[in-house]
């Protein structure tokens, strides 16, 4: 069962919380390693994920091989829409077990589609596992690009984006800059300000940066998700340890932050 967030529990239902590091393949992230484990061990026939095209923009891809997968890196910080083309790709192939990687909002509707296929044209029966990335919100692309240009950075040079307390850390080819979150907030999509879900409570596995130590935080929410993590670790694709109390507390604080923001904003809207 997948439960919604609330003030007591801002991270939803949990099977296990882990901190993981990639092991088998260098330069690949934990999520990529898990996907690789599933592809190489025939747990899934394909993976739907986003690839960074340039700057903060991305493109959705259906991936079937190891090489294709290892080419997709980095997070995009803009919603990469699942388009009609994706539906075409899925219905016009004999792929039957697909792993989806997306944002909490996408995990929500995929879970909905999987549980309640409201129309027969749904490809819900092809969804095997849903992986969600943590999300603080996504940017209105143009506004954000203008903002970083003010810091004399070209969007093409952006390597990674992260949040560190009250600052947004933009890592680019020549170093990094810190932008106060208050300024950044203006460029977050209004819909995202309404969203209470930081971790992606409808995914089988949620993944994001660990706070207290280096590594990736993994939350599993179903037996399926938990088994995948355990097997991926047994097969040596990732290294896993249970998350510390401190880590979980910090995670909840961060999730609560987004939830409260959403509540404030909803109240303002109504």
């Amino acid at each position: 069962m997948f439960h919604d967030v609330n003030l007591e529990n801002p991270i939803g239902s949990v099977e296990g919380i882990y901190v993981a590091k990639p092991k088998k393949v260098e330069n690949a992230g934990v999520v990529t390693s898990i996907l690789l484990y599933m592809l190489e061990n025939k747990k899934v026939d394909g993976v739907v994920t986003a690839r960074k095209v340039k700057g903060i923009l991305g493109k959705i891809l259906l991936i079937k091989t190891r090489d294709e997968l290892l080419n997709t890196v980095g997070n995009c910080w803009s919603v990469v829409p699942y388009t009609m083309k994706l539906k075409d790709m899925l219905t016009s192939s004999n792929l039957n077990k697909i792993a989806f990687v997306g944002l909490p909002c996408q995990a929500q509707f995929l879970r909905h589609m999987k549980t309640f296929p409201l129309v027969e044209s749904d490809f819900a029966n092809k969804i095997y596992v849903i992986i969600s990335l943590f999300c603080m919100g996504t940017f209105i692309t143009d506004g954000f690009v203008k903002l970083i240009r003010e810091y004399k950075i070209s969007p093409e040079d952006v390597k990674n984006i992260d949040i560190d307390k009250d600052y947004l850390v933009i890592i680019h080819s020549d170093g990094e800059i810190k932008v106060p979150v208050d300024i950044v907030l203006n460029h977050i999509q209004h819909g995202c300000l309404l969203c209470p879900d930081y971790t992606g409570v409808f995914a089988d596995i949620s993944a994001g940066r660990a706070i207290t130590k280096k590594g990736t935080l993994l939350i599993t929410r179903s037996k399926l998700g938990d088994n995948i993590i355990k097997k991926a670790s047994e097969e040596g694709y990732i290294e896993v340890e249970s998350a510390s109390e401190d880590e979980i507390t910090k995670l909840k604080e961060k999730a609560l932050e987004k939830l409260k923001r959403a509540m404030d904003y909803t109240a303002k809207l109504l």
Binding site: T91, S92, S93, N94, V119, E120, S121
Partner: peptide
């Protein structure tokens, strides 16, 4: 047909798509 009830591929001018070779 895209759906087992009310197949959505039927359209004016023919059908919207035909399956590819594998399918």
């Amino acid at each position: 047909g895209g759906s087992s009830t009310h197949p959505s591929y039927i359209t004016i001018g023919g059908v919207e798509k035909i399956p590819n070779e594998k399918i």
